[in-house]
Design a protein around this nucleic acid. Sequence first.
DNA 1: AACAATATGTCATGCGGTTGACATAAGGGG
DNA 2: CCCCTTATGTCAACCGCATGACATATTGTT
Lengths: 328, 328
Amino acid sequence: MVKPKIEDVAKLAGVSPTTVSRVLNNRGYISEKTRKKVHDSMEQLNYYPNEIARSLFIKKTYLIGLIFPSTGNPFYGQLIFHLENICSSLGYKVLLCNSQNREDKERNYLKMLQMNQVDGIIAGAHNRGIEEYEIPMLPVVGIDRYLSNKTPVVSSDNYEGGQLATQLLINKGCKQIIHINGPHYLETPANLRRKAYEDVMRANNLNPLTYEFPLNATGEIVINIVKQIFDDHPQVEAIFASDDLIASKVLREARKRNINIPQDLKIVGYDGTETTRMLLPELSTVEQPIKEIAEKAVEIIIKQINGEHEDIQLETILPVKIIDSETT
Amino acid sequence: MVKPKIEDVAKLAGVSPTTVSRVLNNRGYISEKTRKKVHDSMEQLNYYPNEIARSLFIKKTYLIGLIFPSTGNPFYGQLIFHLENICSSLGYKVLLCNSQNREDKERNYLKMLQMNQVDGIIAGAHNRGIEEYEIPMLPVVGIDRYLSNKTPVVSSDNYEGGQLATQLLINKGCKQIIHINGPHYLETPANLRRKAYEDVMRANNLNPLTYEFPLNATGEIVINIVKQIFDDHPQVEAIFASDDLIASKVLREARKRNINIPQDLKIVGYDGTETTRMLLPELSTVEQPIKEIAEKAVEIIIKQINGEHEDIQLETILPVKIIDSETT
DNA sequence: AACAATATGTCATGCGGTTGACATAAGGGG
DNA sequence: CCCCTTATGTCAACCGCATGACATATTGTT
């Protein structure tokens, strides 16, 4: 029992292959009677049109490649969930790639996606020095990453997020506020969080101090930096971490050191994913509009795919929301 | 500038299309000189072999479909990460499907995957009454779900997990132990957690008591049930939740009620994902071997794809590990 | 009765790549 | 010098489906 093809359906229905194809694609004149006959035969044979063959002919796969560091990360997991969801509702399928922030992987995935003739790529991972994202004729959208100077980017308002977080802490009377961020050299809009923090600090005549952790930070590395911060600055009043996982480490370490939260130390994280909000609702954080980011990204990629290049803006920035919870 | 094809490469390299194909597939005799010429031409033209065309001919796509409720969930997010990772290392690509536990979605995805000629499907979502998983000629593996009585299943040792958790609580002197679980009617190996709990309770002359929450539980529903448990049984000594997210709600509510943990109330969750361990390391839990589950599942699907049906066992059960942390 | 609209069939071509059959040519070994 | 191995080319068929061109019926309309 091999897979049935159009020919088999036609034979069973007593019509010509062309007629079956016409039914499948709603082309030309088809009577209700034969339409039914054909559909019945397809069901009986358990026939499913071969999308591969179809794609080859129409030169379109309805496939979109997603390149992100890892679905295991709550932020990317939720983002990818929404991306897939929206794509699926529009008839697009999704090829998943976990780049793990590794340049070699990213390159290979890029190649693979092209070989598989994807209609577009949405990427939220990017190691410097991958110019390969400038792919002639292939729509690409970046999420929180500048992929090339022609690639549209969607991100939340990282600068505003940094402002909101820093201002909140200042408003609550903190002066010694430390920021923890990823590596500086990475050219991502997320760097704006740090810039906003530093700007706001200076505007308030306060000294900014940013600790950096290396990329691909393991939990170990992060906790070491957190410990170091507490050791270096025992009188720190607030810590603004550039993501919730780091913030949770800070929270953990502070509790271990019997520091009163929020009286003696205030903490603000970043992302506000469903998972974090569920597991750690007490954490104050800057919530990213993950679903809206996904919607925008898909909207733009579809526009590109459909050749509507006019009304595509290169940069889309969505508003964030600060959640003033129990750690502030 | 359309996409180059073999013919274009051949022309540029000054050889015949067949020769290019020979280079690509390492067939027949090829001199090092022409091999280089061909590769140079491919690079110059930015040529990538069209996998769609290739797939059509060789009747194999190297695609594997993944159907799970949501990448947003930490457990599935991590599981999918590993699945994709392993598949990718074996030359397989992954089509992602978020079924959201919805029967209609699941059916559509199943159809879609067949139309796209996937080589196999790994599914961890299953609504009762979908017999469509019995797909002739299409390898399928279930993770923690019985998909059909011929479909191999991989899961962690849910019974042992339930035993370990319950026994731990009993060993620590608890008598009033309540269990929270998903709906009973769902035929999943996870039901064994409940069975183990009830068995162990009875074996110790204790009364088991299981609270069920409906499927697709929103955070709201879960927190309501948790509140109800505390209202109904103020003197409860321990709660064993069938996943960490629920356990976190219990923990949260207990703190809100100023119940001392672990002195007055002990809590054990289930799953032990990286995210939970990071955000809520104090939570005692039963850790599933997520990576190993993924490895087994892929191993089995590949064996099926390669037609090695002999040494495939229908049920694979992997050991769990209890983490005795601060909530016990 | 003439004509348009509807309904279906036949046939050939192409999407991009693979493969087998067969031809041809150069070079090396005996 | 003959034969075998190596290296490459030509050609046609095929994978499953879409599509355009064209032919042929059967209806219904005026």
